[in-house]
Design a protein around this nucleic acid. Structure first.
Lengths: 186, 186
DNA sequence: GAAATAAAACCGTCCAGACGGTATGTTTCG
DNA sequence: CGAAACATACCGTCTGGACGGTTTTATTTC
């Protein structure tokens, strides 16, 4: 790829591209399909270039997690400020961000990340930390049994979409969402 | 089957051992830690021996899934026959099997399996088939929104235990379970 | 403001080790 | 014996990543 030399350099764009390609590859070919060669090739970058942005494979996955946690935090925060009712606010935001179309735009990447997460003990721990932190942070408003239930159901729904399990029809999904939101208010 | 005197080799036992070791390795070292060499070493068997029982790595993982699906079906069936109430019977059994201590003894192996499942598109599809089949099979008794909700929550709970997220205290867990069972009856 | 210099953003190659798998023994058991 | 249950040795490929070069961009200097 000779043109790469003469192209205008946009390191941040390349970085994002690499993360996106990593995520996509993870979904399509599975966790074992994520190799430096494959990522570099799919992104139209040499392996050396890839290793310039992320000095190791672990750094690449860590970078992906960092990026996505930031986005998730931002999306949740956005959803929470739109919600006047304090009780169960975080739980509703969590639900909304995960499943309302515009909530979390990068669904594909999250799928990928979840897979890598479950596969790699190190990432698993980092994720666990995030969950604990957020849980403690919103203990004041989202501690009820029902809220906890809703959050677990959200995770379950999420897992189902990840596994591409039986897609329930939209009407039913709508009803389920409504019921879940309802539960956060009791 | 067991003539303790002259039976030195117990191929079936070795087979089970290999599956167990595979599962354990997957949990401890992550999906990438599952290599034929590692499995063979951890089981105290040569790689040739391992490949005698499972002619390929894919066959090993498939075998693990087969084995666990059989166990899951059996456990669910057992739980269902103990339940007099038809409505939501399957959902309650699903919940019980996943979280009552004696329900599903092989928790470690299920954790491993889920990871491998999410990582490998092929296994993902096989699992999806199982979910669809069971869902259709019990459509008569477990079709309500609440049942679906409970099943999703079960998956979420299970995912949390997989990630070793914040272990909620037993009393709270008990309350949550009670609430979930309650929901299956409405 | 242009030349000089530093630094960042890449490329292409090579390699040591790991990995899945084969091919070929050797022991054990019915 | 003969087949199943293992072990040993080995091979081709792939993978992570180290390394040295080249080109683009930013900064300083005069």
């Amino acid at each position: 790829m000779k043109t790469a030399h003469h192209r205008k350099k946009q390191p941040e764009a390349v970085r994002q591209l690499l993360l996106g390609v990593t995520a996509g590859l993870c979904v399509e070919k599975g966790a074992s399909g994520v190799t430096l060669d494959a990522v570099a090739a799919a992104a139209g970058v040499s392996k050396g270039g890839l290793l310039h942005h992320f000095p190791s494979k672990a750094a690449l996955l860590d970078g992906l997690l960092d990026d996505l946690i930031d986005r998730l935090d931002a999306a949740i925060h956005r959803a929470m400020t739109d919600d006047p009712e304090p009780r169960g606010r975080f739980t509703r935001a969590y639900l909304k961000v995960c499943f309302v179309p515009g909530g979390m735009a990068e669904e594909e990447r999250w799928k990928a990340m979840t897979m890598a997460l479950l596969g790699e003990p190190h990432l698993r721990q980092r994720w666990r930390r995030w969950v604990e932190d957020r849980s403690a942070l919103h203990a004041g408003t989202d501690l009820s049994i029902n809220c906890e239930l809703v959050r677990f159901a959200t995770d379950g729904l999420w897992l189902a979409s990840l596994l591409e399990s039986h897609r329930l029809d939209p009407a039913r999904e709508q009803a389920l969402m409504h019921r879940l939101v309802e539960l956060t208010r009791t």
